[in-house]
Design a protein around this nucleic acid. Structure first.
Lengths: 342, 342
DNA sequence: AGATTGAATGTTAGGGCTCACAAACGGACG
DNA sequence: CGTCCGTTTGTGAGCCCTAACATTCAATCT
């Protein structure tokens, strides 16, 4: 398994061609100010002519920084995670960094060492897209072990802000979950049921909080996994109770399952049942009926994470954690309950 | 921007600790058979004790292979692409390779050199998830320039199998598109309209072929982008014609848009309009009505792509291109037209 | 016994780059 | 005119490994 090595053009070749020392070439490719303008031009011409591309590996080996970020996540096909990844990649590419992806298995318990083993070496920059138990644990493992450079995204399991005393970019899931819950209560629903995605405690807590604040009963949340199917089944169960008129869902995929369940159970949405999702997936606006949901800027989250990582690498002091405010998007799946008694 | 370098444990430290030469340590970590069992144990103990992790960079620099794959794609949030990426990552991790992602902008025209610039160096292993014009062009650019190791996934724009005379894993989009079209014709529809995603010529060609084979008129395909919104608007236009009774969509996201358009236009699905999607996204089965679509094993595709790459790196001869057969999944959005006249 | 193997280990030379210096050069200054 | 200084360039060492070759040593053969 060895790539052909037809002796690539290296820095010495360029130096010879330009009639300077290899170090001067190094300075040019690193934008050092200590090169005379004329020399720089000469070298750049040589680089051009020879088609020289600096060897990333050698640079990293010699210089200490690989300019590469490892992104840890569990599921690249989840809307939030993949959008966040895109955002990271976007910002990283602009900054000349390479993004490696390491996909973890959500069902596998990882020892801290297993998490660290996914990095090129101890201390290398990493971003964790922390959206479930596995990735949240990974985030903690890195934070504990890494001499530097871990940035988490998403907030994961973080129950409160104390844990956020770290390099973290997060969406304020909690506040917006409360907001979505209040939206349903304001429409006249007696209470709101919750289909929970694994982890994402903040969403659950926000929902709970809003119910409590309004003095409403807090029904037990229905535990789902990430699949639409699990939400469908959970909702079918929930809908046996005719008093269930509003369901908040951990994400849009679950919301789709809930709507389908209502359909099968013969309940009209939103007439008999209101459903609110989370994430504002691309398809949400085009569901029939169109999904009321929470819009989250995952791409911006990813970009923010990389920028944070960069400032950390640059030795900047840790900024206050950013809690990005999502936005409730009211569409067609939420409405007052039909037989309102007030 | 420099990672702290507290002088990591290296191969020489291990060698000293174990009382052998560094080369012997190298042999141990490379599973060379030329090490006595006792020595191997000694060395392994030293590695364990010192927490030694071989430096990936140095290995690559010295040995010639970085054991890393670059995946080129345009949109990690597209279901197919992200699933494929997961599949690649899965197989690559198992084989001890690192996966780097390079996300291209679908709207930007890339010169061949720009594509190559995304690789760590000329000739380094790459997999292109070729599903649109940009990535298909990237695939061609790599094929032309790379001394080795390009594997494409998905088939992209490939109009026929001649182009497939390369290291390629693909889904037989063409055959299954024809199959889906026949499904609709068999239900009694006079013809089938097509909402086209950018590129993916095979799907369009399969549809065309099936219509021609059945002696049906071939309406002009409606060009959409990847967004549900574009499909929605295209479908709204299409539905002004009351004779439109069946629409095949380039993917499920478009199908959702078409169903929504039907709803807005006051046409029942599937009573007045049949819709068939592509990809079998997780939500497809739970739409109301549940989406008839084509199931594609993207994850398997990704794994297959990596295995192919590996065998290429190992110097294996090119196998015959694999055209994986997808499967039509009939659910609730396809039915006979209401006013059938036969 | 001496020569011949073969396995196990060691030695040396890079790979392509950056870092920390040292050297050369020109001008400003006393 | 010599000294000092800043700018620009060059030199050498070293990052951590592997490839290729050299060496050692015990077992085998004649």
């Amino acid at each position: 398994m060895s790539t052909d090595r037809p002796r690539r053009v290296n820095i010495v070749d360029v130096a010879r061609h330009a009639g300077v020392s290899h170090q001067t070439v190094s300075r040019v490719i690193n934008d050092s100010p200590l090169v005379a303008a004329a020399t720089r031009r000469k070298v750049q011409a040589a680089i051009e002519e020879l088609g020289f591309r600096p060897n990333r590996l050698a640079r990293a080996l010699a210089g200490g920084t690989a300019r590469e970020v490892t992104v840890l996540t569990t599921d690249t096909s989840l809307y939030g995670a993949s959008e966040t990844l895109s955002g990271i990649e976007d910002a990283a590419r602009a900054a000349g960094h390479t993004v490696s992806v390491s996909v973890m298995n959500p069902d596998q318990p990882y020892a801290d060492a297993d998490v660290l083993a996914r990095l090129p070496h101890l201390g290398s920059p990493a971003i964790v897209i922390a959206h479930d138990a596995t990735t949240t644990r990974a985030m903690r493992a890195l934070r504990a072990a890494q001499p530097s450079t871990t940035v988490a995204t998403g907030g994961g399991d973080l129950a409160d802000e104390t844990e956020a005393a770290d390099w973290l970019v997060a969406l304020d899931d909690r506040a917006v979950a409360a907001r979505a819950t209040r939206h349903l209560l304001d429409l006249g629903h007696a209470t709101v049921h919750y289909l929970a995605i694994p982890s994402k405690a903040p969403r659950r807590l926000g929902w709970e909080q809003a119910l409590r604040d309004a003095g409403r009963p807090v029904p037990p949340p229905a535990a789902c996994d990430w699949s639409t199917a699990s939400a469908y089944h959970a909702a079918i169960g929930l809908l046996e109770d005719p008093d269930v008129t509003a369901i908040l869902c951990g994400n849009d995929d679950l919301a789709v399952g809930a709507v389908r369940a209502a359909h099968i159970a013969g309940r009209a949405v939103p007439g008999d049942l209101s459903v609110v999702g989370f994430d504002d997936c691309p398809y949400a606006a085009f569901q029939v009926p169109a999904l009321t949901t929470v819009g989250l800027d995952f791409r911006g989250l990813g970009r923010g994470a990389f920028e944070l990582l960069r400032s950390k690498l640059d030795g900047a002091p840790r900024p206050r954690p950013t809690w990005r405010q999502p936005e409730l998007i009211v569409r067609e799946t939420s409405a007052p309950p039909r037989n309102r008694t007030e």
